[in-house]
Design a binder for these strands. Structure first.
Lengths: 353, 353
DNA sequence: AGCAAAATGATCGACGTATATCATAAAATG
DNA sequence: CATTTTATGATATACGTCGATCATTTTGCT
């Protein structure tokens, strides 16, 4: 009942341990005949390499790095907290983690940071990326030197990373639309949307998904042209306030991007008969707004699951074993009743200097 | 930069390896003075025990068991699939998993199964339990023999398990109510509820949470007395059909328990102007019903996360290390747009014999 | 002081794998 | 057939910890 060792395999295959080892770690200089015998023995005995012993032997340490956009963006602070928190518990497994700040959404800065990684003696990286061909050169170089690369939250050019971990923003937008549609219960309505920037791929995708569902399933609702906010709370406060005081026929707000504190401030100032409100990302602000009933829904991308998956993925890539099962990652709907206790949300602001 | 070994600690503390080892694995017969010195050295060097090496040395294998209710219940089939799937990838870590079927919701059967576990030479168990004092005896005996015990999905008597992994059913009910309230957009309405059994603690809690929120925040809605279904699809089909054909003023259905296929069948038979529908647990049936727009929402308890957490928890308990970060577990809201791809949902029915 | 009990040191052989060296055996080449 | 490749075997050391054993030293107690 105990699992077989490589010695057992060698014996069963009728070869020496050395030869079995040559096959398993394909070191070459082995006759095809022997390879087959070993392979068969592996299959017959159900041999699985003991990764713990292997890593112990080669004294393996994993040096991981995360490239995360800087700034006061509450969402990325939350991601950072999750990474740090996970990292604390990973030293047990000989894993060291480094969070590298990158100037937010600048292709040049990102390109440079990726190039820098090559010097840094790193085994695996998760990058909050951009779909820009400029990144392909440094990414290719990085991967050639044996570094595992995955995209996180925002994808990299597909051929230049091993995996992408993040939600489908089209789905996120569709989900927001579905909830907004439901909340109108068949009545007429007009939805004021807000976006940070139409160049941001994730914003565009969310809006697209949103409009698709409203058009298809809620024809009695109108989606108004998005107001551009640059994710700036001040801009949002101003714009939302204007809409509210105009006593327009707007029945719902959907903020595709960030800057929710401004939106909440505007609503707080005019609480009477506010529109139905959907925003993205559960952070200290939006959580409090939910509790205060200033907004109705938060669509979240579960950064805790994302970070969890990122680590599992990187380890699997580095150990050359296949992926363990991981929780599914889908846009999650929060209302005031199903909020997680997660303290990492609330300390987000405090920790970001 | 390499992490210190116990030898390093011993040296730093000015004691022999043997003494350091006595402290770390508290084997006793060590002077307080030495204990302190070693503790200090551990803190100073940041020593963390190499679990891989430790397990290798003691040739540790974890024998885990899951006690899961039998029957064709789609939800538990899904749980079973997740366990099996996870188990496949855990042999790498020398973990063997056994799923033990228990006659559903029978205290006697559960008591017997728990007693049997003592013979079974198991290191850790996750039990879909009941809050019944009858279980306390066998549970105490089990834990005395060094077995780690956690409750899964449904809790055990609190003093007799190390942890509980499952959602708060009150929260689940509240969440369902919030969504149902929203979907009425301030209009009048009456909600027909269905429960399997009022003795089932989870059903009662969900209903309680549901009624609480409706009463507090949606006073224009009426919650009708629950119809008892015994989780039987046939009963549900009959009852729901009757309500529908009576052309009553019912605006929403909330099924607290199982047997959704019956509810869906009734709705499918009378599709015109159906009520708003909320059910629990995403399984093949309910997923398809969402896609077909026969129901509106599914509140799910994320069995994938639950199983993930259960394994992490058991390993942490057995290794005597502290818990790694795990994704939060909250009732999750699914609509037709944010459904997970998870193939384990769909094969659920097929795999159950 | 004398003696038992408690504490400490020194050291060994596992665990399963990686990685290396060196000698020998088999196969391919001309 | 002689010679060079190529393949195989045998064996050693290291990784960090656990669980021993045995000898020795220190402490506590009367």
């Amino acid at each position: 009942m105990v699992s077989p060792t490589l010695s057992d395999v060698a014996q069963a295959a009728g070869v020496s341990y050395a030869t079995a080892d040559r096959v398993i770690n394909n070191r070459g200089n082995v006759a095809q005949k022997s390879i087959d015998k070993v392979r068969e023995a592996v299959a017959a005995l159900g041999y699985v390499r003991n990764v713990a012993a292997a890593n112990l032997s080669r004294n393996r340490v994993y040096r991981l790095a995360f490239l995360i956009p800087t700034g006061t963006n509450a969402f990325f602070n939350r991601i950072r907290n999750h990474i740090r928190h996970a990292a604390e518990h990973l030293s047990v497994d000989r894993i060291t983690v480094e969070i590298i700040d990158v100037s937010a959404f600048s292709v040049d800065a990102l390109e440079e940071s990726i190039a820098d990684l090559a010097q840094r003696d790193v085994d695996g990286v998760a990058i909050v990326g951009l779909q820009n061909p400029l990144l392909e050169g440094p990414l290719a170089k990085l991967r050639e030197s044996g570094v595992a690369v995955i995209g996180l939250v925002s994808d990299l050019p597909q051929k230049f990373r091993s995996a992408y971990i993040g939600i489908d923003n089209m789905v996120a937008g569709r989900t927001a639309a579905r909830m907004t549609g439901m909340a109108h219960a068949g009545g007429l309505g007009a939805i004021q949307t807000f976006v940070g920037s139409m160049e941001a791929r994730d914003h565009a995708e969310r809006l697209q998904g949103f409009c698709d569902v409203i058009a298809a399933d809620y024809p009695h609702l109108t989606v108004l042209d998005p107001i551009l906010t640059k994710d700036d709370p001040a801009v949002l406060k101003e714009a939302a306030g204007a809409v509210l005081s105009a006593r327009s026929n707007v029945t719902a707000f959907y903020n595709v991007g960030a800057g929710n504190s401004g939106l909440v401030a505007a609503i707080g100032a005019a609480p009477e008969n506010r529109p139905f409100c959907v925003v993205h990302e559960l952070v200290a602000h939006s959580k409090q707004a939910l509790i205060d009933k200033h907004i109705d829904l938060v669509i979240d991308q579960r950064p805790d699951i994302e970070v969890n998956r990122a680590f599992a993925m990187l380890r699997a890539l580095l150990d050359e074993r296949d992926l363990p099962p991981m929780p599914d990652l889908m846009p999650t709907i929060y209302v005031q009743d199903n909020l997680p206790a997660d303290p990492l949300i609330d300390i987000a602001e405090a920790q970001s200097r």
